[in-house]
Each structure stands twice: as C-alpha cells, then as structure tokens.
C-alpha cells in the first residue's frame, strides 16, 4: 500500500518536472553544477581579487585594510630605511621571462608540431590512427611524472650528457638542468601534443585536389605550403599556439623542477607568495595579473576565430 503511495508521489513529481517549460527544466538540471562551480570555482577568484587590494598579515593571511600596495610592489621597491619608493624591475623581469619562455615554447612547438601533424595527416587511415593515439596519450598523462622524466634526461649524469660526451661534443658533462634552456625545453615537451592535435584536425579536412591544382599551375612545394597548406590550416595553427601559450605562461612544474626554483616564472612567484614568502595580497595580485593576461589572450583568440569564420562565409 505504502509502495503504491510512493509510486504515485514519484509520478506527480516527475510529471510536475516534465511539464515545466524547457528553460526552467534546464535551469534545475544545471543548478547543482553551477552551485559547485560558483562556490568553489568562481567565488574563490572573487576572493583573491579582494585580497589583492589588502595588506599582508605578518604570519600569512591578510589584514582587512584597503591598499594598492600589492600592485605597486610589482614596479617599485620600498626602501627599508626611509620608506621611499624606487623603481625595481625584478618582478617585471619575471613577467617578461614568463612571456618570452612561453613564446619560445610556442615557436618550438609550431616548428616541430606542424610537420608532424602534416606527416600524420598524409598517412593511410590505419597508421594515422596509431600516430594520433601516440600523440594523444602524453596529452593526458601525468604532467608531474613527465616533467620528472625530463629531469632524468637532462641531469649531469643523464643519458643526454652521456651521448654528448660519447660522440665527443663535450668533455665535461654540460649543466643542462636548472637553466632557462631546461625550462624552455620542458615547456616545449610538456605542451607539444596541444599543438599537433589541432593542426592535425584542420589539415585532415584539407581537400588535396587543391594541392594537385596548384602543382598543375607550376607551383613548387614551398609555394603550395605557403599559399594553400598554411592558410587552410590557420585555424588549427592559431588554436595550437593558444593552447600551448596559456599553460606555458602559467606553468609551475617546468620552472620549478627543471629551473630548480632559481629561474622563476609567474606561476612560481604566485606559489611562493602563498608559501614561504607569506604575502597573500602580493600573490593574489600576481594571480590577478596572470588571469588578466590569460583572458586577454583568450579574447584575442576568440575575436580572430570569429573574424576567420566571417571571412569563410
């Protein structure tokens, strides 16, 4: 008896739900995800925006007192004796280093990624699937483990140095680890699949009759690449550059493990301020600056993509 009662209750509940207007139903279905992401994804961002305008507490945390101090600290250093502000470029340098290293990672990924994507796109379907699978797997595997494995390669006693000494390029092992080179290579290695996959996706769709037509019209290989293959894969190239630039810019692991924590990027600066340096407002301000850079890059990318779509129509 009670069971039937439950069933009836359930039916009315379901009926009520399914008779709601579709937008209302969507809202109900979305609310749990929105509540979680809102509370633990977006609200914390709002909090550090507020924190970036506060004063650091002595033992970490914040003092609720309004101040632009954290942002001023990026450009100026306060003299400990007379309290005057003097221009200081050390934090700007960290910002510049991050942008340059991320840019170099993008260039490196493009130089290796485009030929690779093209090579894969021109294989037979069976081989193509295997190669794409091989590029996809590192895309999803543990970045910490991958970065650690790159550390093993670059160590003084590592295989790269053994090879270099073996073929007589160098007598002494080169100190490759803990350099800017190591960070750049680490970023390239970490995010290479992010470049190959989108370029492959656009190259795969190219109609190769266009290439044949170009050859019939006496174009050489270089011309075909320049006038047909690159323009037609531009959406993939742009997407790949974006996908490599963003995580490289905000990378923490590559500069931390491969740079030895001496050559900081923005990500390490942020982590440091919330860790040993105990300056939460400054760390929050750095996080806000990084987030703004990422959003600007996102907007440029979205606008360019929209313009390309318009041109295509």
């Amino acid at each position: 008896m009670a069971e039937r009662h439950d069933a009836a209750d359930r039916a009315t509940w379901i009926d009520r739900f399914s008779s709601l207007p579709s937008a209302r139903r969507s809202l109900i279905l979305l609310s749990p995800a929105f509540a979680l992401i809102g509370a633990f994804g977006i609200a914390p961002l709002g909090l550090i925006l507020v924190y970036s305008f506060l004063v650091p507490g002595t033992y970490g945390g914040v003092v609720w007192e309004f101040s632009f101090g954290a942002y001023i600290q990026f450009l100026f250093e306060r003299d400990i004796f007379d309290g005057t502000l003097a221009f200081s470029s050390s934090y700007l340098q960290i910002g510049a280093r991050s942008v340059i290293l991320a840019g170099l990672a993008v260039v490196g990924c493009l130089l290796i990624g485009f030929p690779t994507a093209y090579f894969i796109a021109t294989r037979s379907p069976g081989i193509r699937n295997i190669l794409i699978f091989l590029v996809t797997v590192p895309f999803w595997t543990n970045l910490l483990v991958r970065t650690f494995s790159m550390m093993l390669i670059l160590r003084d006693q590592g295989p790269l140095n053994s090879i270099l000494m073996g073929i007589g390029i160098t007598e002494q092992p080169l100190s490759l680890l803990y350099t800017d080179f190591a960070i750049g290579l680490g970023l390239l290695y970490s995010f290479l699949p992010f470049m190959v996959l989108p370029i492959y996706a656009s190259l795969e769709r190219i109609d190769f009759r266009l290439v044949e037509a170009a050859y019939d019209l006496y174009a050489n290989r270089w011309r075909v690449l320049q006038r047909i293959l690159i323009p037609l894969s531009l959406p993939g190239i742009a997407g790949g550059c974006f996908l490599v630039f963003i995580p490289s810019l905000s990378s923490f692991l590559a500069p931390d493990l491969l740079g030895g924590g001496k050559h900081l990027m923005i990500g390490n600066l942020i982590a440091q301020q919330f860790g040993t340096a105990r300056n939460w407002p400054f760390g929050s301000a750095a996080a806000m600056i990084l987030l703004s850079l990422v959003l600007i890059a996102l907007m440029i990318y979205a606008r360019q993509a929209a313009r390309r779509d318009q041109d295509a129509v």
Partner: peptide
C-alpha cells in the same frame, strides 16, 4: 605531391621527444 622532405624526420623527433624520457623513467 603530398611529400615534404624532412617532415617525417620531424614527426620522429616529436614522438622521440614525447616518449624517450618516459622510456628512460620506466627503464631505470
């Protein structure tokens, strides 16, 4: 028509770069 000299080599560099470090890690 589709072949570009050196592109295959770059693909090998790419896969080598992605997998050799992991191989060394597992090996040791």
């Amino acid at each position: 028509l589709k072949r570009y000299p050196g592109f295959g080599f770059m693909a090998a560099v790419c896969l080598g770069l992605l997998y050799l470090p992991l191989f060394v890690l597992v090996f040791f």
